[in-house]
C-alpha cells in the first residue's frame, strides 16, 4: 500500500516515454498511460467523494481532460502528479456542483434512417459498473466527515501511498501543511471510528518497525492553525 503501484522512478521515466508517444498520436500510449494510473486515480476520487458512481464520473472526466490536453503537460512535474492534480480539481468541481449528471444511460429515441438503423446513447454511466466500495462503511463515513483539505491529504498519502512532497504538489500546499493535515486527519478518523463503535486493530509497538515507503525530505513550510472538520 505504501509505495507505488509501479516503480516510482522507472515508472516516471516510462510515463514520459508514453507521454511523448501519446503526443505523437499513438493511441496505444494513451491506453498504457491510462492503465498505469487508473487504479490510483479512481481510488483518489472514490475515497474523497465516497460514492463509486461519482468517482467513476470524476476519474473518467479527469483522464479525458488530461489526455486531450496532454500537449500542455510540460514535464515539469511527474505525469502522475499532473494527472492526479486534475483528478483533485475534478473532484472539487464535483463537490461544488453537488448533484450528479442528470442524463446518464439515457436511451434516446430511435433515430432510424430509411434503412432502419438505430442510434442508442451510451454515454455517462452506461457501460461502467464500479464495484461496490469495499471500504467499511464506518471508515467511509469517517473520511467524509473530514473537511476536504484533510481528506485529500490523508487519502493521497496514507491510502494511496503518495510521498508527502508529491501530495503537496498535487494539492498545491507546503509539505509541512500536508503532514499537519495528515496528523490531524488521523486523529479525527480515529475519533470518528471510535464514535461509530469501530475498533481499529492495534499494531504491535509504536515505533515504525515497518516504515512506510516515503520519499525522504525535510519538513518545511508553515502550517496555519486549523481544526479538523471545522467546515465539514
Amino acid at each position: 500500500m505504501s509505495g507505488t503501484e509501479h516503480g516510482r522512478d522507472e515508472g516516471t521515466d516510462f510515463d514520459m516515454v508514453l507521454v511523448e508517444r501519446a503526443r505523437g498520436g499513438d493511441a496505444d500510449a494513451f491506453t498504457e498511460l491510462y492503465r498505469r494510473h487508473e487504479r490510483r486515480a479512481y481510488n483518489l476520487a472514490l475515497r474523497t467523494l465516497g460514492d463509486p458512481w461519482d468517482a467513476a464520473d470524476v476519474a473518467q472526466e479527469a483522464f479525458i481532460k488530461a489526455f486531450r490536453n496532454i500537449d500542455s503537460f510540460k514535464g515539469e512535474a511527474r505525469f502522475g502528479t499532473w494527472l492526479h492534480r486534475i483528478v483533485v480539481n475534478a473532484a472539487y468541481d464535483h463537490m461544488r456542483r453537488h448533484k450528479p449528471e442528470p442524463m446518464d444511460g439515457e436511451i434516446l429515441a430511435d433515430l432510424s434512417g430509411p434503412a432502419g438503423s438505430a442510434a442508442v446513447v451510451a454515454s455517462g454511466r452506461d457501460g461502467i459498473d464500479p464495484a461496490v466500495d469495499g471500504l467499511s462503511d464506518p471508515l467511509r463515513r469517517a473520511l467524509m466527515s473530514l473537511n476536504e483539505g484533510f481528506r485529500f491529504a490523508v487519502v493521497l498519502c496514507d491510502l494511496l501511498g503518495f510521498p508527502y512532497s508529491e501530495a503537496a504538489e498535487i494539492l498545491g500546499v507546503q509539505e509541512g501543511t500536508i503532514k499537519s493535515r495528515i496528523f490531524r486527519a488521523r486523529e479525527a478518523l480515529a475519533a470518528a471510528l471510535a464514535e461509530a463503535g469501530y475498533e481499529i486493530p492495534t499494531p504491535t509497538g509504536l515505533a515504525a518497525s515497518d516504515p512506510p515507503d516515503r520519499n525522504p525530505g525535510p519538513p518545511s513550510g508553515v502550517t496555519p492553525p486549523r481544526k479538523i472538520g471545522e467546515d465539514a
Binding site: T31, N43, P130, L139, I200, P201, P203, A208
Partner: peptide, 20 residues
C-alpha cells in the same frame, strides 16, 4: 500509528471495467 497502519492495509478498489 494505528490509523496509518489501518489505512495502509485498506485495499484499493479496481477501477470500473467499462471506464477504460
Amino acid at each position: 500509528k494505528n490509523v496509518l497502519t489501518f489505512l495502509q492495509g485498506s485495499a484499493l478498489e479496481e477501477a470500473p471495467a467499462g471506464m477504460e
